[in-house]
Every structure is written in C-alpha cells, then in structure tokens.
Simulated scan of single mutants.
Amino acid sequence: MIKVFALRLGSTKVPFGQFYGGLDGWRGARAVLRFATDKKHFIIVPIHAYLIDHPEEGLILVDAGVNWRQTHEHGDYYRGIAHYLFDDDEYQLTRDEELPAALARLGYRVEDVRKVVATHLHEDHIGGLSYLPDAELVISRGEWENRDWKLFGFLPMVYQPSLQAARKITTIDYASGAFENFDASHDLTADGTVKLLPTPGHTPGHLCVLVRLDGYQLLITGDTLYTLRHLANDDVQAFGAGDWVPNQNASIRRIAELRRRLPELVLAPGHDHSDYQFLHLAPGLAKGGLTPEELAGLRAYEETVFTAEGRLQPEAIPRFVPGPGADHVGRVTG
C-alpha cells in the first residue's frame, strides 16, 4: 500500500504580489523590480515537500525544501546577484523542521530516501539536497537543459551551489505516453502508480507528480499552483518574470481539466498557507493518506472557495492585511 506524507520543511517570506499580484503588473522586468523593492507587503508561507513510501520502489521525496545554511547563514551562503535580490530572513527553519528531523518523526532516515523528484530547480525546492547526497535526483530534461539560463541575461534561474549537492542526476523525457488530457507522461514506478506530468510555466521544465492511492489520486503541484486558489487563474495569478508565463496559465488550465476528468483528484500545492493545507490536507497526510471522511471534508472546503464555474467565491479572493510590526509581515484574508 502506497503512503504519502506531507512534510513542513520551513517557511519563506515573500511579497504578497509575488503570490497574488500577477493580474496587477507583476510580469516581466517590472515584476523583478517590484520583487526587489516592495518591502511593505510581505507574507509568510510554508515550504511543503511530500514523501512517497512505495512498497516496491521505497522512499521517493518530492522536493526537498531548504537547508540550515540557507536559512541561518543566508548572507554567506548566497553570493553575487542572489545575495542582493533576497533578504537575509528570506527563509525560516527550525531544527524540528529540518529534513532529517521530519523524516525521523515518521520512522525514516535520510539514507532511506532513494529518489528525489524536483518539480523544478528553485532554491526552496532543492536546498535540502545537501542532506541527501546518495539519493538520485530526478528532473525533467527541459529543466536540466535550462539550468544555466539567466533571466534578462544576468539573473540565474538556478543557484548552482545548491544543485551541486546532487551526485546522481536522471533527466526524464516523458516517454510513457499520454495520460488523460496530458499529451505525455513518465511512469516513475514500474506499476504506474507514480507518474510525472509536464507543467511548464513557473520554470521552463516544471513538472507535477501524480500518485494513485486507495480511492483517490493526489497531484503534487509544486509551484504550478502556489495554493489551491491559484487554480482559478482568471481571478488570481502569481509572479511571472519569464517569457514562459503563458505556459504556466496553460498548465493550470490543464490541471483544472484533469480535475474535471478525475473527480477523486486531490491537489497538494507547495506553499498553501490556508485552511485547505493546515486543517484538511496536512492532518490527513500526517498519517500517510486521507480517509473517506477527510476527502469529503476537502470537497466541502473547496465548495466554499470556488463557484460551480471554477471562479473564486467573492469571500475567497485573497487580500493583504498589514501586520503590526516594523517587519511589514502581514497576512492574507480570503
């Protein structure tokens, strides 16, 4: 029996506009400028990874979070343009949230992890590779071939020192044929219970991971969907600096269509900071899977978020509420 666990591997501080401002000018060079200069509209969002315990394939980790040095020695860890673009308190990570501790609470060791699937190569998804030097890193070929790409010619898409922790890297080409409304897929496991689906847009080679469980399927979305609400991308969109942003919107619509075709599909975003993650999804996945009652609770919650047409309910539209402190960290209503 396959199990999937949600792992909270720290948090990150982001501008509200990075998550929700895509319909209001957070595009292209202007988005990068606002990212670097907007210091009064921060929110804290979780960094989630997902651990798959497969009866034949062993442990497969989807994304790896951040590591201790990234968080607590930020200024020394990051050099060059990366140091100036991000704040020293960009990440928060306690000892209990470090990957080795999160695995130990479930009875596993870092040495037990055989594969790490990176949805993409951004820092908050590959920093934890430093804990897993013997694991095989699996990424899409499109992501790997763009690892040296620089936005506007000077902003690196991938911070190479974090990627260097991976000793064995396997790239995939989606050679397993079509799946539902996806033209291509890749069977990560021999029994086809774990599939990789191409969802380019957040990065050129971003992918999602589909896991077939008992009575439902779980789609680990990485940053194609920061949160559940981003499924309604006519109402809210995320930051987009690259030319591939239209691809992200197309990927989101493809996920929405997959959800219509597979009514039992459950979405597992990477940074959802709402009740969807903390009151419904994470508690069920803390024990390795969702019960029928928990699945019903998820569906009931989704009905409070989306209209029948898939738009956001008015009360579910995210709005920034300033915080009381000088750090300008606020919260999101909706």
Rank of each mutant, 00 (worst) to 15 (best):
L207N: 12
P246K: 07
V305I: 15
R261Q: 15
L290N: 05
T224I: 12
E257T: 14
T193P: 00
C208H: 00
Y216S: 04
V266N: 00
L285F: 11
D235N: 12
V305G: 11
L262T: 13
V211T: 10
E303F: 02
L298Y: 03
R212Y: 05
L218F: 06
L265K: 01
Y301F: 15
D272T: 09
L258R: 07
T307P: 06
V236A: 05
G192Y: 04
A296H: 13
L228I: 11
H230N: 15
A308N: 03
T189N: 13
V209C: 14
V194A: 08
Q237R: 13
A282C: 01
R229G: 07
D275C: 06
L258F: 05
Q313A: 13
H202W: 15
L285S: 14
P198K: 01
G222T: 05
A232V: 03
L213W: 03
P204A: 12
G205M: 09
L219C: 11
L207V: 15
L207C: 14
N247I: 00
G270N: 03
G297H: 06
T304W: 01
G201F: 14
L207P: 03
L197E: 10
G288V: 13
T199H: 09
R260D: 01
T221L: 06
D234G: 09
Y301L: 02
Q313H: 12
T224P: 13
